[in-house]
Design a binder for these strands. Structure first.
Lengths: 184, 184
DNA sequence: TAATTTGTCTATCTATTGATAGGTATGTTT
DNA sequence: AAACATACCTATCAATAGATAGACAAATTA
């Protein structure tokens, strides 16, 4: 069954979003879905293979959500709010972004996975930049759409991390308020 | 010698800022300064004691830099730029903020250390909020000084993490440009 | 001088980790 | 029917982790 593999990824993703990749052990992961650690190695020979799968899967999920927003006949500001809502959902689940977490663990990632990670942020940034440049003249800030996209992405990622420490959602809310205020 | 203890903290801090607390082992740490791991336990009985010491030390260092900026007879914008420059220095050393890194590892921290961490960000945020509210009417954004302070802190922390993945300083620069543009 | 504290050592324990070798049952393909 | 692939298993390895006990020398204090 390919179902087990997906369950493995589900549990692994939740674990990484909570405690990071370093804290995820093949045994704990196996226990949680009722198989043996060697069986996890069957699906993901090395830990880096599991990490790759998680990043790509997360990116595809994210991409689908972005496409869904793109398909809406909303104005830029509303689409941006919908984008931020993705992060709010993550915060509601008391998680952080999978890639935000892995960004912190960047040092111990394989070069391949570092590239995948970098690609995730680039993608997200490009989507926002494309969205913003539709009517770039309605932005209340003297920065390029690309720069603003970077500010939004890193701001939201940082807010998720800091809010979890404080046990609040104040950072995310502040980011949201400010970002939306930059659009007329 | 109390010098060894400080050398321990120096090396440990650098290690955490590079790879995180989880990746720091007592043995590796001991090796780097030429003692045995049991001697590290003499200074810091448990790993959480080392973590506490690192957070507090980092906060004190930070506080000193903030005080130095406060003492200057500069306008708000220039002081804010000086604040951001602290983060730029961290980025130049190819590090991330010690507390930003630990924020990602929040799940595996003791309640005490989570409180210390939370206090660090509160402090930083308060310093900015105090700075901004000196002339709050010169802020180009419809958000409170407290909120703006949150945006700045989480934005800079996130930028450090994401820039390290991309191997650039573009996120930090974007944050800087935007933040400074919010002040008249 | 005697007693104590400080800072290090050797040696070791237990737990956990990622990973591998090789076996087995089920199902699919040739 | 024979060969193979899939997906699990048992058993085990070597490495690494945090932590502790107890010995020792040097420095400090009584």
């Amino acid at each position: 069954m390919n179902d087990k593999r997906r369950r493995l990824e589900d549990v692994a993703q939740a674990s990484v979003q909570r405690a990071g990749l370093k804290s995820l052990s093949f045994r704990t992961l196996a226990d949680e879905i009722g198989i043996k650690s060697s069986s996890v190695h069957y699906h993901f020979p090395e830990k880096s293979d599991l990490a790759s799968a998680l990043i790509q899967r997360y990116q595809e999920d994210f991409r689908e959500q972005l496409d869904a927003i793109s398909a809406r006949r909303w104005n830029v500001k509303r689409k941006l709010a919908a984008f931020i809502a993705i992060f709010e959902q993550v915060a509601d689940g008391e998680r952080v972004c999978l890639c935000g977490m892995m960004a912190a663990e960047c040092e111990s990632l394989s070069p391949d996975n570092r590239r995948l990670l970098s690609g995730f942020f680039d993608d997200m940034e490009s989507w926002i930049a494309d969205l913003l440049c539709v009517n770039a003249d309605s932005i209340n800030a003297p920065v390029s759409t690309r720069q603003l996209a970077k500010v939004i992405v890193s701001g939201l990622e940082g807010a998720l991390l800091l809010d979890r420490v404080a046990g609040s959602k104040a950072n995310l809310k502040a980011q949201k308020d400010l970002i939306l205020s930059l659009l007329k």
